[in-house]
Design a protein around this nucleic acid. Structure first.
Lengths: 153, 153
DNA sequence: GTGCGTGCAAAGATTTTGCATACTA
DNA sequence: TAGTATGCAAAATCTTTGCACGCAC
């Protein structure tokens, strides 16, 4: 069976890019941390564990390349750093995020949710939507439960 | 009648902050460019026109203060800089943005749109929503019309 | 050998901080 | 006069770039 890495490799090749060892190591880190929203520095440190000779600039260049190819999304939660999020294969839409303002956790919502809203925006604002970013800020279920516990004590 | 500046002044005073001339100049620039999504540097240059002695650090500190007080929202469209957007008074929700990937224009949507979606998220993910960010990326109506013109030629 | 990719270090860009000074209640 | 707020410059952060070297076809 064709693996995710293989498909990414093909995608690179189709645009005359190579999947070098450094690029592969970077992609593997992203695959292994799909749930985390890693910063470039995070990726760098993780790649370095297995390939200590890699340079930070290479990680930046790889992430930029993957962003261009739509393999990853570059996202920004308001802290000073960019984070990189692997796109779901075949996903028509970018997933959404729930950012907890108490513990900082970031959860993902894969469901679409915005279908109706997009229809309205395209019609009423005459805007051709290509992509979207939706992030909710609030209290996650874990912190919510924790607070309940405290209340009870 | 009480002006917008007056109300912001009161809000500052209620938290023991002063509306100094520099802060007032900064707020005035934001009021005069409400549609514009200015970066800190933009604000600095505009404030400097009327108050040349102001320092960039003061602008940053003022914008940070206004963000804390929820007078402005700090937003980020993916270019490296933070932009500052005056909150609509009395608006229950932060407005949304339409970013044109062709001309870079940023339009605003004041309508809510997310009521139903928020209900679903709060219920199904047990997440207490405090705020949200929704940005659509695509082709604005101006570029869309422009492209039509070209097609016709 | 040509060209792409890399590592390193330096440069750039944006934002924050330290500190002496100025202002205000 | 005590406490804020400011301006300047330096520092800190994150990211990009220049350049010489290395590797693959």
């Amino acid at each position: 069976m064709e693996s995710r890495i293989d498909r990414i490799k093909k995608q690179l090749h189709s645009q005359s890019y190579k999947l070098t060892p450094q690029r592969e190591a970077t992609v593997r880190v992203l695959l292994e941390h799909e749930e985390d929203h890693l910063s470039a520095e995070d990726v760098y440190l993780l790649v370095k564990e297995k390939s200590p000779e890699i340079g930070l600039a290479t990680v930046y260049r790889t992430l930029e390349l993957l962003t261009e190819l739509n393999v990853v999304d570059k996202i920004n939660f308001g802290d000073g750093v960019s984070r990189y999020d692997l796109r779901q294969e075949g996903a028509a839409h970018f997933h959404h995020h729930l950012v907890c303002i108490e513990c900082g956790a970031v959860d993902e919502i894969q469901e679409d949710l915005l279908g109706d809203v997009e229809t309205i925006v395209e019609r009423d604002w005459n805007f051709k939507i290509k992509d979207h970013r939706l992030t909710f800020h609030g209290i996650c279920h874990r912190c919510h439960d924790k607070n309940d516990d405290v209340d009870k004590e």
